[in-house]
């Protein structure tokens, strides 16, 4: 395996985590704030030392992989050296790595060629993100890590960014990104590793994750009463807007049969898997319930009342 990131780490915010990324994969790490994404990324770069377990990046320790330019990252909150020009900083990156992309090419890839002589502290939010990107790609890495890469970009900037990214990653590079934008995850990732409370709660393709919850969405234009739908078997949620009804159900076939066979006028019926947002909410929601239950049973096992409450606080705060 050329590019395997593997971690079995026991960490306050990341529970023993077993993750293997294969060469050439594009993996998304979505998840709510505090899911442990940044910690997981920090461990892959050697910025955070795991308490237990080990991390190997392309067969090396994370720091050795960083030094060799095998892995490079665009971090969420990293700042850029104030007072220097864009090209000067990227050229510094070119000199830093053993097998770099030429500075001009890195600027080109990041779409910063026309900003090359601007001062880094005078860039807009989106341009700063592009500079972070340029400073990562100049390493010419096998593995590229992006932590919230399109934050501070507008819709068009995001679309352009992902276009460049797809072209860059196409050259058998491994891409791992954290993102809040689930359309980005859906459109760009081959694999989604959903973290919540420092645990992997789903690891699959975006399409399969959408069907994994077992919930489908039925949409139909329906005239007349919709009260009966909420009481129908398997229905968990009904939204009515005018004559448009949107139903979440675990038994879509029975519901469709009931609508079609009923006496009310209907048209435009449509059954689809839930959106990625809804799947994630469902998956992370159940994960929160599980850790709350674990916390509770852990608390019950510890005896005295004072211990219970302090235990409880800790476990809840990490969930």
């Amino acid at each position: 395996m050329q590019a395997a990131a593997k971690s079995y780490a026991r960490h306050p915010s990341v529970h023993p985590l077993d993750l293997e990324v294969r060469c050439g994969e594009t993996v998304a790490l979505p998840g709510p704030n505090g899911a442990g994404k940044s910690t997981a990324i920090g461990m892959m770069l050697g910025l955070v030392l795991p308490d237990t377990g080990r991390v190997r990046v392309a067969g090396h320790t994370p720091r050795a992989a960083v030094a060799g330019g095998r892995i490079a990252a665009m971090l969420q909150d990293s700042g850029m050296m104030p007072g220097v020009r864009v090209a000067e900083l990227v050229r510094f990156g070119e000199r830093l790595y053993p097998n770099p992309l030429p500075c001009a090419e890195a600027l080109e890839v990041a779409g910063l060629t026309s900003e090359r002589s601007r001062r880094v502290d005078k860039l807009s939010g989106g341009q700063s993100q592009r500079l972070r990107f340029a400073l990562a790609v100049v390493a010419n890495p096998e593995i590229l890590i992006l932590d919230e890469p399109t934050r501070a970009m507008d819709v068009r900037g995001r679309a352009e960014f992902w276009e460049t990214m797809r072209a860059f990653a196409a050259k058998s590079r491994t891409l791992l990104f954290a993102s809040h934008y689930l359309d980005e995850v859906d459109n760009n990732a081959e694999r989604v590793v959903l973290l919540a409370s420092g645990r992997v709660i789903a690891d699959d393709t975006p399409a399969r994750i959408r069907t994994q919850t077992g919930v489908s969405v039925v949409q139909v234009f329906l005239t007349g009463s919709t009260d009966w739908i909420g009481r129908f078997d398997g229905v968990s949620d009904v939204q009515v807007r005018g004559d448009r009804v949107r139903i979440k159900t675990t038994a879509p076939d029975a519901l469709v049969a009931a609508v079609v066979g009923g006496l009310q006028d209907w048209h435009g019926i449509n059954v689809s898997p839930p959106s990625l947002d809804e799947s994630f909410l469902a998956l992370t929601g159940s994960a929160a319930t599980v850790s709350a239950a674990t916390a509770h049973s852990a608390a019950e096992n510890t005896g005295t009342h004072t211990t219970i409450s302090s235990r409880d606080d800790h476990l809840f705060s990490s969930s």
Partner: peptide
């Protein structure tokens, strides 16, 4: 303290800070 394993006796307590990341 949380990054230093020897100084973080209670991982669940130290975890609260990290979650904001």
């Amino acid at each position: 303290l949380a990054t230093d394993p020897s100084l973080a006796p209670d991982p669940s307590a130290a975890g609260t800070d990290r979650l904001a990341t």
